[in-house]
């Protein structure tokens, strides 16, 4: 599904060059549930932007679903994002002046679908928000807003869902409900890449990739034993103050 080879991303910051990604090789198969984790500045956000086709690498190749996307034009990338990728953000990023169902329908508008209502309602049903369809985001709780955002991410039935700290702005109980939805999506066959610095959230995936200084430092499959060890570790060392977004 995702194949990254020697992926690099360099930024100019004043006179110096920042190596945000410094030669990354990753292969993620279709249907995997992967956590991407690391401290602030480790390069995980850059990695997510590249995987999400929001940005292009400085060098290296990226093959998404069998297609090389690192050489695509802005216009082609927009189509790829629309059809193959669903985004879930930490701050939900809903459009506040329109209803939940209209928010969910936005990707359909850009795929030039003529009727959007039925598909948007179906997506809302999958996240259990049918009764709140006509409410505006400001009338919904945090967890409900994130569920609207997930419905928006899945409305075009993408093969890949990219979630960037999806539980970061939620309390732990609501966060668990949201994670429950990701598990359901995973079971239905969607590939999920979850970017988070919270170890107990990351531990819920089937595979965990750890990054530091633009490089991958660990990439391991999680069995139940490793998972409970990670969760225990997360409980002992509470998350640092001033967590990155």
């Amino acid at each position: 599904m995702i194949e990254l080879r020697q992926l690099r991303k360099h930024y100019k910051m004043g006179d110096s060059i920042v190596h945000a990604l410094d030669g990354v090789d990753v292969h993620i198969a279709a249907g995997e549930f992967v956590s991407l984790t690391g401290a602030s500045g480790s390069g995980k956000s850059t990695m997510m932007h590249l995987i999400g086709c929001l940005d292009r690498p400085t060098s290296g190749s990226y093959i998404l679903d069998g297609v090389a996307v690192n050489k695509m034009s802005d216009r082609q990338l927009a189509v790829v994002r629309n059809r193959k990728i669903g985004f879930v953000f930490q701050t939900f990023n809903l459009i506040n002046r329109t209803s939940a169902v209209d928010n969910v329908a936005v990707p359909l508008i850009y795929s030039r679908k003529t009727s959007t209502k039925a598909a948007a309602m179906a997506a809302l049903e999958k996240v259990g928000l049918t009764p709140r369809a006509s409410h505006k985001p400001s009338e919904l709780s945090g967890g409900e807003r994130q569920r609207v955002a997930i419905a928006r991410a899945i409305v075009n039935e993408p093969k890949l869902i990219l979630a960037d700290e999806p539980t970061g702005n939620l309390d732990s109980r609501t966060g668990e409900q949201i994670m429950g939805i990701f598990h359901q999506l995973h079971e239905a066959g969607t590939t999920i890449v979850l970017v988070t610095h919270e170890m107990d959230v990351a531990a819920q995936a089937k595979r965990i990739i750890r990054m530091r200084d633009g490089k991958i430092v660990a990439d391991e499959m999680l069995d139940d034993k490793k998972r409970s060890a990670l969760q225990a570790e997360a409980l002992r060392s509470p998350e640092p103050v001033g967590s990155p977004t």
Binding site: G52, L54, D74, R75, A78, V79, R81, N82, R83, F87, F89, N93, I95, V106, P107, Y110, S111, R152, N156
Partner: peptide, 16 residues
């Protein structure tokens, strides 16, 4: 600006 970013993320082309 942020809304524009979101629209682009979900598939809006520059021309859209």
């Amino acid at each position: 600006t942020r809304e524009i970013g979101v629209r682009m993320a979900v598939g809006a082309k520059r021309s859209d």
